[in-house]
Design a protein around this nucleic acid. Structure first.
Lengths: 198, 198
DNA sequence: TTGACAAAATGAACGACGTTCACTTTACCC
DNA sequence: GGGTAAAGTGAACGTCGTTCATTTTGTCAA
């Protein structure tokens, strides 16, 4: 070892911290290598000894966002009295996350790793966990359905909510005077998760 | 006037043609000013006399994509026997468009004009037209509903289908072994547009 | 204490990008 | 034929991600 106010791992965390702040404040294109390095108190070269590319740094921020989302939705399930309420709460928290942490959320879904970089398994694991969180509640809400149908329902509902968020943030829903929460409620009603069962 | 194998308008079209081809073949970041200019047989400067920025050129490609989508979905309605079939056909064509013209579709929804550039009204007009195409059929499918509810249903369904496409193309649906068409069908069933009415 | 070694850190330099603008070329008119 | 203005040019600028030869520094054996 030589030189070292910080260990390698500390520099890694420092970089992600600064990148996270840039993304939260100015969005994905509001961050760049030179700015992050300066803010860290290191030179660009050092940054590149810790992250092979800027894409991988953005990816690490996305992992944090995914974990935060997972924690958030998990808490919603804990607080809910029954599974219908849990589903509604999860959906609403997802919408709130997208609307309040816009830059974080957009980066999470708009950033793509280059084709030649494999998606780390931690990411896939937590994404799967997010789906099983919903599937668990749907299984309770639709007790008669097969697992495969539950998987389909979970993805249909989730994509629906996600689509509302995406298009709202892109201003592409053509929704003058329409409330995003009302649109999501409409979706929830269609999935019988507000009130009755299936 | 001076000089001129092509008029200004012809150069404009030429630029959009080349940009369109680049985007279709290699996606949004597969195009750049120098390449487009060379392909057109002009210098970059000429390109910039016709388009104030590359963003506005991409935007013009998006207008074409939107028009093509509108035409495509419009034809689906024409061919359908009744409104339920029309809705299903529109949805399926939307999915096919996203899956087959991936680069076009992703550019349409991922590209954003800078904040200081106003969204041309032609774009807003055709986007609204796309929604009314769906609303019209939903009005027939749900004859008892108020216009405001129809608007909500249209946006909920549309965002749902859009979300399925988005997440599928981003590989973020965690859908091993699940068919995208099945997910969309699940959504359609929930909206009572396959079979019964509401 | 010193000198040598390797890890750590550096930042100039590269190529690609969007964009600009002083300059050249050309068509048209008197 | 010469003057004029539009059309067209491409070198140059600033910024970006990325690289790597070079310098700095901590460690440890002599």
């Amino acid at each position: 070892m030589a030189r070292g106010k910080h260990t390698r791992e500390e520099i890694r965390h420092l970089a992600i911290d600064v990148a996270e702040q840039c993304i939260v404040e100015h969005g994905m294109q509001g961050m760049n290598a030179r700015h992050i390095a300066k803010e860290m108190g290191y030179a660009v070269g050092t940054l590149y000894q810790v992250f092979k590319s800027m894409d991988l740094l953005i990816f690490e921020v996305n992992v944090r966002s995914l974990l935060a989302l997972e924690k958030n939705l998990g808490a919603a399930v804990q607080d809910a009295a029954h599974c219908h309420a849990a589903i509604e709460a999860m959906v609403m928290r997802y919408v709130d996350y997208a609307l309040q942490e816009t830059n974080r959320w957009q980066t999470l879904f708009e950033h793509r790793l280059p084709d030649d970089v494999a998606l780390p398994e931690i990411y896939q694991k937590h994404r799967a966990q997010l789906f099983s969180l919903l599937e668990e509640q749907l299984k309770c809400a639709y007790p008669k359905k097969f697992d495969k149908d539950i998987a389909l329902e979970a993805r249909a509902l989730w994509a629906g909510v996600h689509g509302v968020c995406t298009l709202t943030l892109l201003n592409k829903l053509d929704d003058d005077g329409l409330n995003i929460k009302d649109i999501v409620q409409t979706l929830l009603v269609r999935f019988n998760t507000v009130g009755g069962d299936a």
